Each structure stands twice: as structure tokens, then as C-alpha cells.
Simulated scan of single mutants.
Amino acid sequence: MKLTVTSAALAWFREEWGCQEGDSIRFFVRYGGASTVQDSFSMGIAKEQPNEAGLSTVEDGITFYMEQDELWYMNGKGLLVDYLPATDEVVFKLD
């Protein structure tokens, strides 16, 4: 399993959230909503430090991660985080 954050998503986090080197972005599981990854669940995003990161990547000094107890959401696959300018949204796909 790996976590991939595209350059478009990285640029979006820098511009919209003011992220800079040393920051951490958590992707977490929420019950409800629409998702391309799991039915009845969706992904949330928070700017916070990891507690027990199970999967992470560092892009341009920013740590992106998921906690260990939420990795079930990906069914053993990697997670691709992208940004779509046409709809102005961050999207998640199994990779």
C-alpha cells in the first residue's frame, strides 16, 4: 500500500489551506457521503499531527497520512489523492 498525492493536489493544499513545510494533513474515514473508494463512507481531511500513522508520504516537506486504524478503508490497496480544477475538488481513488 502506498499513498500518492499528485502535484495538483499538493498545489491545492498549499494555496487553499496555506500548507507549508512541516505541516501534516490527515485523511480519515467518515461514515456517510459519497465515495469512489467505499460505499457508505467518505474521506475527510484535517490539518493535524499524526498519532499512529499507518500510511504516509512527504511531498515538498508536507506530511500526508492516514492513521493505522483506518487503513481497512483501502482494502489493501494504495490511495491516490488528486485535485480536479474543473470541479474544484479533491478526489480519492484506490491505486
Rank of each mutant, 00 (worst) to 15 (best):
S42G: 05
I45A: 07
K47S: 08
K47D: 05
K47Y: 10
K47R: 12
E48P: 02
E48F: 02
E48V: 13
P50F: 02
P50R: 08
N51Q: 15
A53F: 11
A53Q: 08
A53T: 15
L55D: 03
L55N: 02
L55C: 06
S56I: 06
S56Y: 09
T57F: 14
V58G: 00
E59R: 13
D60Y: 05
G61L: 11
G61W: 09
I62P: 09
T63E: 03
F64P: 00
F64Q: 04
Y65Q: 03
Y65C: 03
Y65S: 05
E67D: 12
Q68K: 11
D69M: 08
D69Q: 06
E70T: 11
E70K: 12
L71R: 10
Y73V: 06
Y73P: 00
M74P: 08
N75Y: 14
G78Y: 14
G78N: 14
L80K: 14
L80C: 12
D82V: 09
L84V: 11
L84E: 05
P85G: 01
P85D: 01
P85H: 08
T87K: 05
T87W: 00
T87F: 01
D88V: 00
D88S: 11
D88E: 12
D88K: 04
V91L: 04
V91K: 04
F92M: 00
F92R: 03
